[in-house]
Amino acid sequence: MKFSLGLAREGAMERLASQGVSRRDFMKFCAAVAAVMGMEASFAKQVEAALTDPRRPSVVYFHFAECTGCTMAVVRTVNPYIDELILDTISLDFMKTLMAAAGNAAKAALEQAVTSPYGYIAVAEGAIPVKDNGIYGMSGGQTMLDTAKKYLPKAQAVIAIGDCASFGGVQAAAPNPTQAMGVNELMKHLGLPTQAINIAGCPPHPYNFVGTVVHLLTKGMPELDGLNRPKMFYGESVHDLCERWHHFSNYELAPSFDSEEAKKGWCLFEVGCKGMFVDNNCPKIKYNQTNWCVQAGHPCIGCSEPNFWDKMKPFYERIF
């Protein structure tokens, strides 16, 4: 089902009706969103309320030491689509990758958003380099360290998107030359109480991010696991969800990538798969609606786990 809610949300239902979308269709859509989030059907009502509330909640998106891969994952969200998300659902008031303004005009947009009486949700992509007072990462004339210190604690909620913001990521891999930290480690380091929700993955699935945003807007804080990841997305292991699991349980293990067994789609444990130590929903949700690493014949490298760069290495050797 595809439709646009339009932008001014007053009279949203009337406008939907004029597009030939019945309330029944719309509620079906809301139920689908609820299902994606792993919620009961009754939750659709709250989705509806969030999608038709006249004022779109402000979201301020920070890029720290990162590769913009998480952003590129988010712009490929399909439920809702990115244009629906940023035009109809949230007000993306600061995000360097998409925003029209630059320089001082962009800084003013940020200042306007973070001083709004309505408040804002902060999203952080990337780790924060702390070594030498943070000089290894700067933007807008200040260190990322100062930016994080200044704007993250004041947010109504902080979402750390991706492995870098969640746990430090690639730049924090040994020997971590710039002493890069994820948001929660940084807040602890600074003695601040702020706790970010971690949407782990490199990149994370956009479902897991958008689902968390919608949850925050409709129902508040989702239930988190011990690593601050929403349980609804990170509650099962990749191994348990894997479509090759039955090969594993039958000891059907591909010995190499050029083998007949690899061609037959056998389990990749012998060639390095770390799926049994990784909690994520990739086999169920699939990336880009079509595939995921193991389906593409490549072992899982554990990209949603803390410090997987060091803990899961070497990626092509059996883990035990």
Binding site: I86, D93, A101
Partner: peptide
């Protein structure tokens, strides 16, 4: 008209 310009805020 809704007044929240989002990514177009302060566009040149």
């Amino acid at each position: 008209n809704q007044g929240q310009l989002g990514i177009f805020t302060n566009a040149y």
